[in-house]
């Protein structure tokens, strides 16, 4: 369970999140959607304990988030950060040394599923290869919360499909919750239980994807467009 209680986050004078209160249930795949600069990455970083609220509280399982939250929360960054000399398996060992919930065998299974060779250097992999390797490192942790910042962005359709399928194959929704940001909404929609739409640092709307289709006959993409068009008219 993840709770935001009146959370505001400012970077200097810039407001990234503005008095957000929301709680996220366990065992779901939740999409955090919105335009660039709407506060999506900040939302994830607050859960990951990488940044802290200017005002308000973020709680995970009832505990206020500190840096120690990394034992419960796996975070997949939008950035590619790695040592130049590292092979995939070196990175895997590094993760294993940092996180007690890291399952090395599972990591190798995921790499195999995604067709990544463990003895390749990370810098020799294509962008798509690194995107998949990063997913493997994240999914190999048995952390109750997996956060993924733009796991599909800038990757070709085949790689995106392989990531989506890898995710479905290896996540354990009886024990884990995934919160991901993405612009590839069309592709990710069948994966989502819920979508949270952010606009200007506020939660514009929150929907259960099946209900949205059932009651409004609307897809998540259309809904997002409507939310943003509504703003233009103002």
């Amino acid at each position: 369970m993840i709770e935001f209680e009146h959370v505001t986050k400012k970077y200097g004078n810039v407001i990234a999140l503005d008095d957000v209160s929301i709680s996220l249930e366990k065992g779901k795949i939740i999409g955090v959607l919105g335009a660039n600069g709407s506060g999506k990455s900040t939302f994830l970083k607050l859960i990951a304990g990488l940044v802290f609220p200017t005002k308000g509280k973020v709680l995970v399982d009832g505990m206020e988030v500190t840096r120690n939250i990394s034992s419960k929360v796996a975070y997949l960054s939008e950035l590619d950060v790695y040592y130049d000399s590292f092979m995939v398996q070196d990175m895997l060992e590094f993760y294993a040394s940092q996180f007690s919930d890291f399952r090395t065998e599972k990591a190798y299974d995921i790499l195999e599923f995604m067709e990544i060779q463990p003895d390749k250097k990370l810098r020799q992999l294509s962008k798509g290869g690194r995107g998949r390797a990063k997913i493997a490192f994240t999914l190999a942790r048995e952390a109750p919360i997996l956060l993924m910042d733009e796991p599909l962005s800038g990757l070709d359709p085949m790689v995106r499909e392989s990531i989506v399928k890898g995710l479905i194959s290896f996540v354990d929704l009886e024990r884990q919750t995934i919160v991901m940001t993405t612009h590839e909404i069309d592709e990710v929609e069948p994966l989502l239980d819920e979508a949270i739409f952010l606009r200007d640092g506020k939660v514009a709307e929150r929907v259960r994807v099946d209900e949205l289709r059932e009651t409004s006959r609307d897809s998540v993409v259309n809904r997002l467009k409507k939310i943003y068009k509504g703003e233009e008219r103002r």
Binding site: G27, K28, I29, E161, V164, K165, I168, S169, V171, L173, P190, L191, L192, D193, D210
Partner: peptide, 9 residues
């Protein structure tokens, strides 16, 4: 996995 859909669905 076959359909690319959330296991909860």
């Amino acid at each position: 996995v076959q359909t690319g859909v959330n296991p909860n669905t």
